[in-house]
Amino acid sequence: MGNTSSMLTQYDIEEVQQHCKDAFTQQEIVSLYQRFCQLDRNNCGFIPSDEFLSIPEFAVNPLSQSLLRMLDGLNFKEFVAFLSAFSPRATLHHKIEFIFKVYDTDCNGKVSFHDVLRALRDLTGPFMSEKQREKL
């Protein structure tokens, strides 16, 4: 898959659509590809995490650091698979798996006490002390 929407073939679209389990229509995939190309400023075929921070809505998200761990270095197919959890056509199971991955910050397959504390730090910032977080 190239860096312009004209280089996205019908085969590519169908492959991506199948990979994301039909969470997006073919037209939506083309639109996502155009956005991907805008974010891929270096034309290297993947988006480094700092490019995501250039999106204002992403940069202010309190969970952006956890999301960046999942996003760094995604190619287009992986980018669409990541975004598929936000699609209204995604299954509940897919959405739950995605949320679990956001909170499993050490990627050990468990959401530990440490993972929950990290999420609380991200969500509460300076408005809650470490002791209050631990008690919570």
Rank of each mutant, 00 (worst) to 15 (best):
Y33K: 15
R133S: 07
L39A: 13
V111W: 02
Q10N: 12
L32F: 14
Q65I: 05
S5E: 13
D104N: 04
Q132W: 04
D104P: 01
R41D: 12
S31E: 15
G73F: 06
L83T: 02
L63I: 03
D122G: 05
I96P: 00
H94N: 04
D72P: 01
K131E: 15
P88M: 08
F98H: 01
T91I: 01
V30L: 12
C20N: 03
C44N: 14
G45V: 10
L68C: 08
R118M: 12
I29V: 12
F52P: 01
G109A: 06
S54L: 15
I29R: 00
Q65F: 07
M70R: 05
S49D: 13
S129Q: 06
C37K: 03
L32G: 03
S54R: 15
S6W: 05
R35Y: 08
I99D: 00
I29Q: 02
V30Y: 06
H94Q: 08
T91W: 00
F24Q: 01
F127D: 08
S66L: 05
H93D: 11
T9I: 08
A23W: 00
I13L: 07
M128L: 11
D72Y: 02
L123Q: 10
L74R: 02
K135W: 14
F86W: 05
S31T: 12
S84K: 00
N75A: 09
Y33N: 14
I55D: 09
E130T: 11
Q132T: 12
F79P: 00
F46A: 05
T25L: 05
S54T: 15
E97F: 00
N75C: 10
G109I: 07
M128E: 02
K131N: 12
P56D: 11
M1P: 04
D106K: 11
Q34L: 07
R35C: 13
Q132N: 07
H19N: 10
Q27Y: 11
Q10R: 10
L68F: 03
S129H: 07
K131G: 09
R118Y: 11
F52E: 06
T124A: 08
F82P: 00
P88L: 07
M128S: 06
M7N: 13
G125R: 05
L39T: 08
A81I: 04
Q65M: 08
Q38P: 01
N108A: 06
I99V: 13
E130A: 13
Y103I: 01
S49G: 14
F100D: 05
D40F: 08
D50M: 07
V116L: 15
